[in-house]
Amino acid sequence: MLFIHDTSCISPQLSFGDVDLQLLQPVVNRRLMAKEPDYKGIPPGILRRMGKAVRMGVGAAVPLLQRAGIPEGIILGTAIGGMEDCIKFLNQIIEYDEGMLTPGNFVQSTTNAVAAQIGLMNKNTGYNITHVHRGLAFEMALLDTFMKAEEQPDALWLTGAVDEISSYNYNIERLGGWYKEEIVSNEDLYNSGTKGTLAGEGAAMFLLSGIKQNAFAKIVAVETIHTDDAGFVAERWNRFLENNPSDLIISGDNGDSRLNQYYAHLIPDPNNGTDLVRFKHLCGEYPTASSFATWLACYILQGQPVPGSLYQFPAKNPGYKSISIINNYKGQQHSFINLSCP
């Protein structure tokens, strides 16, 4: 059991500082770009050198660290880290034909740069790790934290995830056919009937421990699966729900018609009280988008109202106490996360 003591999220919506999810921030040119704050907690000289992923990751972590001091360790998930710096360095290699290059982009480009930068600023010499398992990078960070909290229940861990859209990884994913060709608004994402989705990005951070005191929610279970068999996913999901009865399901449906099969079984039975919401029209699709869903679940478990745009079917049963998230990345990597009131 992982108890959540604090959380923070930089996303394409108004999720940082004064949260307002009713006022939907629109998609621009197939991208949901993060609303970056002014990063008051980061010294300007350091901020200037940071790539976007590092900036968002550190920026989301700073308020938690300001309140918590020095946690026992830093456990992050990111699929691509500082992709923009990575390709900037790559472009230098090609353009200058392997000539004299500046190392700044290279150092910022490594996927462990976010956790490293947080460790450096926090003077944190404890456990420091970056999980990079694509669509399950955040889930692996959670699993790692579960194991740490089982060994040292009273220690506090900074756990989270970050991924950015740079023009470069946008190009790679677009060439792969993962984004919509037509222009789609946030509201129409789920009704398009076409392949592809909207690009997204963000950072979500959590302070976690094995101790219930002062926690506002808990993460009960995380399960991950590698398969493209929708039937197998449905079978495992049903078993997950039996073990973790839930009154709200958060679905990772991203409007890609090819992936509908993995969510088709979620259509709720009218006789049971479970509600169903979707979130990718808020944050877009990115490998660690389930960290946004986890932040959203925390927000809902704290009694905040669920915006109407999230409901797939009319709400029957607000006042949720147990929430399960189902997500998949490109139909290959699947995850279930259950959270509930402490």
């Binding site: 462990n112 956790a115 970056t130 990079v132 398992h133 694509r134 699993l143 991950t224």
Partner: peptide
């Protein structure tokens, strides 16, 4: 297109051997 990231090798090996348990990729 889908081979550049740090997870690609683990996902390749998972498929090749049909490994059934937890699969992870780490970069420190």
């Amino acid at each position: 297109l889908s081979s550049y990231d740090c997870a690609d090798t683990a996902i390749f090996l998972q498929k090749h051997y049909r490994i059934g348990g937890i699969i992870n990729s780490i970069n420190t």
